[in-house]
Nucleic acid binder design. Structure first.
Lengths: 249, 249
DNA sequence: CAGTGGTCTAGACCACATC
DNA sequence: ATGTGGTCTAGACCACTGA
């Protein structure tokens, strides 16, 4: 029941998408196209409303949704800017949700290994590339308040981030997301994580002070950019520190 | 710099809270007071706008924010209802974020132990009660698709949920949040989790099929109701299955 | 059918940042 | 002083639900 003959509907109707939705989609495209770069001021509500021939209220709704998705930042009196991950004043471990009794004051990244490589079959599938596509590989130790917290193994696709391995070797950035933003104008907007329990491996023992047989958290992280493209695949081993997540229904 | 003499400001000014914000706060209070019960229809936008002597647009903004916080559910043509956790058509493990290759079709709760107890000093502190306050304690095995996934130890405050241990013994609910909603009109709206790695204990070995020395995920969950009161404290041990969380910047 | 929420308009005034 | 986003109003029409 409830089957419609969709022939006509699908072809004739323009699917009845609200104006603010179409406008929002178009604004996203303009950001992706590079017309506006991260940190840049975009036209005001009224200017955009005129451009799209909609009322300010409608334009506002489109822009406000982008602000909610953290794609833009609105400031009264100043204007609306494209979001950035360029660090500086932002808090450490922005994308990591650690629980620790003491505040984290300093964040450090110690690179153990950086090298260009080729995507494995599985990585290629996740990235949507052919196997053997170029990736930057790295192993880093991440520390908070001078205490090593975790080991990260990461692969970054080099088709979108050309010469990433060389640039990382050169700059050894504390924050990869900030680095991707500055170097390639790639904004990490969403990270999916899968967490499971594992036993400490040799590297955990060597670098995290874990003992053989100690349990660790093994986290797989998939980092997506503004356009929803998978940019980075990481495996984290977290030792001796709680990890936290929060869910609001 | 930028210091204001606050004497007058603090006393005289009503802090300049937007109308929609005041209205929203008041609506929350009315829900908390029990004036509207979960599942119930609240007055329409226009009715509420009249009642608060604001325009529909302003009322709409207040209501839409509540909808975003999942405190109410809006349906075109029907009206706005207070959110509920009463199960039925809702998906299993609603508050749990499992990763598994196969879809979860059935969810089961096997109660190993249910008994009234007294809050430990630490629990009491978390609940904001005195030590020794009555709580319901339970140990359950939770299974998906007939496979045991985790063991949960929980304490529920009985001052807000009187005779909870007896009622749980009687009904053995699959979902506690749904049970709290039905029995006590308590809506779990937020759950904070801390996750760390641990080794399987005797119960994990007995009930989850873990081996000695196997790593497990140890999760501490704090469940808060609509009013922000801590209702339940749980410790979960998750074996042999990945756990996942997602973060959007 | 009447009533609901969803979209959209066209104004107004304000607080604030910048120059 | 100008222009920005934040709040607020008072309408309009539409799509949908339920009786």
């Amino acid at each position: 029941m409830k089957v419609k003959s969709n022939r006509l509907v699908d072809r004739a109707e323009p699917a009845k998408i609200p104006l603010y939705q179409k406008m929002k989609d178009d604004l996203v495209q303009r950001v992706l196209s590079g017309e506006w770069r991260p940190g840049e001021l975009v036209p005001s509500e009224t200017a955009l409303a005129n451009e799209y021939s909609v009322s300010v209220g409608t334009a506002r709704k489109a822009i406000e949704q982008l602000a909610q998705e953290r794609m833009v930042v609105r400031q009264r009196g100043r204007g609306t800017t494209i979001a950035t991950n360029r660090g500086g004043s932002t808090k450490p471990f922005r994308f990591l949700k650690f629980f620790s009794r003491d505040h984290i004051r300093t964040e450090e990244s110690i690179y153990l290994e950086i090298m260009p490589g080729k995507a494995t079959a599985q990585e290629a599938k996740s990235f949507g590339l052919e196997a053997g596509a170029p990736v930057a590989r790295m192993v880093r130790l991440r520390a908070a308040n001078k205490m090593p917290m975790l080991i990260e193994r990461a692969a970054i696709r080099e088709d979108l981030c050309p010469k990433a391995s060389q640039l990382i070797t050169l700059h050894r950035p504390v924050s990869i997301s900030s680095f991707l933003d500055r170097m390639f104008n790639i904004l990490i907007m969403r990270i999916d994580e899968k967490i499971c329990a594992a036993l400490a491996d040799e590297e955990d023992i060597k670098h995290l002070g874990a003992a053989a047989g100690d349990p660790v958290l093994a986290v797989e992280r998939l980092s997506y950019d503004l356009a929803g493209r998978l940019i980075q695949i990481s495996q984290l081993h977290v030792a001796k520190e709680a990890y936290y997540a929060t869910s609001t229904k």
